[in-house]
Simulated assay, not measured.
Amino acid sequence: MEEMNQGTQLAVGDVVTGKVTKVEDKQVLVDVGYKSDGVVPISELSNVHVEKPSDVVKEGDEVTLKVKKIDDENDELVLSKRAVEADKAWEELERKLDDGEVFEAEVKEVVKGGLVVDVGLRGFIPASHVETFFVENLEEYKGKTLTLKVIELNRENNRVILSHKAVVESEQATQKQKVLQNIEAGQILDGVVQRTTNFGAFVDIGGIDGLVHISQLSHEHVNNTTDVVAEGDKVKVKVLSVDRDNERVSLSLKEAQPGPWSGVEGKVKPGEIVEGTVQRLVNFGAFVEILPGVEGLVHISQIANRHIGTPQEALKEGQKVKAKVLDVDVDSKRLSLSIREVENDENKKEIEQYTKEQEQSTFSLGDVIGDQLGKLKK
């Protein structure tokens, strides 16, 4: 696009430079060396809507313009600033489309179905390409600068389609790969619950969503994911495995929390009587939960004082029982309990109480007999 030298015969399509001599309400006058000042109508000042010419240029500004119309007989010269900017913009946008370049532009207008930006010509961002999520109110974007990519160009139809969503998705993909390459099984990470399902929860760990299966939500049994977490919750998770080829990460919420056996040695000691609930009956005994997630085994020989063939003869699942702690092995997560010992202790106490009462009764009778004998002797 070669600019014409001043004083040269002008023709439609020529590009010239000139100085603004007057800014009016609906047009701008420019001296380009023609026998009269050229006119730039307000519609030819910019590719976006202009309220008044003074928003674009002021007197004394040097501008580059394209000849739109020339009438030598009537000394009429119509010029366009918009056309020059459009030509340059098309070349630049075509290059950016080929290169996939990311650039910035300010939102000038909010129109039906999207946003309009000035990229040397009128660029349109469809509402579906503003963000990766649905935008309720597009008005909030007016005057905001967005990072954009060109996704479609059609010069014949003057069609320029841009996308901010494409930029965000590209950044997310890059971040996702970065996270995948850097995380390892065993790491404890901060995350945010993105969504819940009937089989678990997806947690964002900084660019990629990992799955916490429902079995990994808590040390206790979980019926519903939402009983433990909700969307938006900030959580700590442990990385169980990383499948970089399929971009899958398995996480655990419970493995990042203190286990139910943490601190058990300070809560339960051998010789103590504890209360619990029978959880499972097996052929060799019964498992009794005495703390959330902490079960102890009552061997079949420790269930009752009488001989029993199966635990079911004396116990049922869900039954509340008292048991004596025989042994605590935190490292192996094993507890030995005895229901029989509780009964023995209670029987022993009853016998001791009975014996004590009998002794007191005997002493009392002896005192009475002694008193009577004394009176007879007198």
Score class of each variant (00 low, 15 high):
residue 80 S to A: 00
residue 266 G to V: 04
residue 55 D to Q: 13
residue 92 E to Q: 14
residue 206 G to A: 07
residue 321 V to W: 11
residue 164 H to F: 03
residue 363 F to H: 15
residue 318 G to C: 01
residue 117 V to Y: 02
residue 329 D to A: 05
residue 72 D to E: 15
residue 112 K to N: 15
residue 303 I to G: 02
residue 89 A to N: 02
residue 113 G to N: 06
residue 283 N to E: 15
residue 203 V to D: 02
residue 262 S to C: 05
residue 345 D to A: 12
residue 148 L to Q: 04
residue 10 L to I: 10
residue 63 V to R: 06
residue 289 E to D: 08
residue 301 S to D: 12
residue 258 P to G: 07
residue 376 L to Q: 13
residue 219 H to Y: 11
residue 9 Q to D: 13
residue 51 E to M: 13
residue 262 S to M: 03
residue 8 T to M: 14
residue 206 G to N: 08
residue 204 D to E: 06
residue 215 S to A: 09
residue 234 K to M: 05
residue 246 N to P: 14
residue 107 V to G: 04
residue 101 E to S: 08
residue 40 V to W: 03
residue 113 G to K: 00
residue 185 A to D: 10
residue 319 Q to H: 00
residue 356 K to D: 13
residue 235 V to Y: 12
residue 260 P to Y: 01
residue 73 E to Y: 11
residue 49 H to G: 07
residue 266 G to R: 04
residue 129 H to L: 12
residue 112 K to L: 11
residue 236 K to P: 03
residue 39 V to L: 01
residue 279 Q to K: 15
residue 272 E to S: 12
residue 295 E to A: 02
residue 90 W to I: 05
residue 43 S to C: 09
residue 304 A to L: 01
residue 163 S to H: 01
residue 276 G to W: 04
residue 141 Y to T: 10
residue 119 V to T: 08
residue 155 R to V: 03
residue 150 V to Q: 13
residue 170 S to N: 12
residue 98 D to S: 09
residue 108 K to N: 07
residue 83 A to S: 13
residue 361 S to M: 12
residue 254 K to H: 02
residue 27 Q to F: 11
residue 256 A to M: 02
residue 94 E to S: 13
residue 132 T to A: 14
residue 169 E to G: 02
residue 150 V to H: 13
residue 239 V to L: 06
residue 26 K to A: 14
residue 17 T to I: 11
residue 24 E to F: 09
residue 212 V to W: 03
residue 287 F to Y: 13
residue 171 E to V: 11
residue 195 R to E: 15
residue 347 N to Y: 12
residue 345 D to T: 03
residue 14 D to W: 01
residue 106 E to D: 08
residue 199 F to M: 08
residue 376 L to F: 15
residue 294 V to E: 02
residue 309 G to V: 02
residue 354 Y to C: 11
residue 39 V to H: 07
